[in-house]
Design a protein around this nucleic acid. Structure first.
Lengths: 248, 248
DNA sequence: CAGTGGTCTAGACCACGTC
DNA sequence: ACGTGGTCTAGACCACTGT
């Protein structure tokens, strides 16, 4: 954090981002570089403020923003923790399929395939790789309440996730695995949703006739620095569940 | 705003919400009751603080929250304004259909029907009315870049929107009309998205064969107090556009 | 009890838009 | 020049968690 030359009247260098944004950027780096792992308690506001030579209020504003972005979790009386990709968070932030009656639940997964390949044009574009770069392709069938409702295809860079799934088993909660095993924190993403006829491959998996309408959720997930790290296409039966979005 | 008995050490009554939340609630009431209409400049932070007997910082925190909720728009050097439902805001907050190539645009509308009727079970449940209550049903066909892509069905309470559309023409931007003509501010909503086969009624409107997949966006829009005020079902062709959602 | 985040206040200066 | 929101600081007390 830049030290202020003035004694009692700190000034912001013109053209620079506000102090609290600089603090935020610095703290995000600490998470991205693995100094602060998911789940750990970070220093108190006063400690961070003293270390960086800014006031507690400035640190607070940075922490508040990061809390809104789901990067931190604050607990009064305990402290501030780096957010983890536990199922509750994913249900809230990333998994927007909810049953039409009843509470949202985290889906089960059956791994259908996990192979290494060369990136095709779509994969290269989505993940910002050169065509032909090594990627890992995963296919899963996911169930809610015992019903297979999602056929999912995932592509990631084999360079970023070396030997992902080579041990045969992949955990159901992939984003926690990305963080714990590879130090890659998924922080956000962009989904494009369409209605399509079920393909000949997916229809039997989902108990449909070929051509029946399915919901495609096309997601590019991004890391803390905004770089794309996963391309996921989920084909969903929306007979008794929906893609839910809150407008706020 | 509750006056504090203490002279130099304001206290919060136990069990009450924080002061800035009470300020927020009070300011939202002023908008909901029409004292502050959409688009108007509200008093400065210092004026509100003086009027309510709280500090400027407390007012600021309330205004900041309302800005995040898209209820206010702040402009440095000018002041704070009550948010309007202009096309830019709707495009950002409510209309999540975007073309797969190119920038989002606000759709054109052709009014197909506008009739008064008695609420059926679904309408009563969505709008929190008793079955049989008077409602107004609207059907529109909406286009992007000259292509009909959305067949839309809207239901509102006839009590809340008396004689809506009785003059024959309805503006394309309905939410601005709700606010200007009826003083009802749409503040949020919840959308449930499904993939369905096109009905015999919608398919020809959208240039599809009956049974072709369409995207259903089922939206209940809510007013400032959280009460449901509009039920909207949009059937979309997603051949060259998508329902876009940012995960943050 | 000590330590944490949460709230509230007060005052200073900066950046921007208007007159 | 003036008033606005935007940033930064400093210090107080409250509410909660753990010992």
């Amino acid at each position: 954090m830049p030290k202020r030359p003035e004694v009692s009247a700190p000034r912001k260098a013109p053209g620079l981002s506000p102090l609290y944004r600089q603090v935020r950027t610095l703290l995000i780096q600490r998470i991205a570089e693995g100094h602060w792992r998911p789940g750990v308690l970070i220093p108190s506001e006063m400690q961070i403020a003293a270390e960086l030579g800014v006031s507690q209020g400035t640190v607070r504003k940075a922490l508040d923003e990061m809390t809104v972005e789901n990067l931190l979790v604050r607990q009064q009386g305990r402290g501030t923790f780096v957010a983890q990709h536990d199922e509750a968070r994913i249900l809230f932030q990333f998994f927007k399929i909810a049953p039409d009656t009843g509470e949202p639940v985290f889906p089960e997964s059956i791994l259908r395939a996990c192979v290494e390949a060369a990136a095709d044009a779509g994969e290269a574009a989505a993940l910002n790789l050169r065509a032909g770069a090594p990627v890992i392709r995963i296919a899963r069938l996911r169930s809610l309440a015992g019903q297979a409702v999602i056929s999912e295809y995932i592509t990631v860079s084999a360079q970023l996730f070396p030997e992902l799934g080579h041990d045969g088993a992949l955990p159901n909660n992939l984003y926690a695995h990305y963080a714990n095993r590879f130090g890659v924190t998924v922080a956000g993403g962009r989904e494009r949703v369409k209605a399509l006829p079920a393909t000949a491959e997916d229809a039997p998996l989902l108990g449909l006739e070929a051509g029946a309408p399915v919901l495609l959720i096309d997601r590019v997930a991004t890391a803390l620095d905004g770089a794309p790290v996963e391309w996921r296409r989920s084909y969903c039966v929306t007979e008794s569940c929906s893609y839910v979005s809150l407008l706020r």
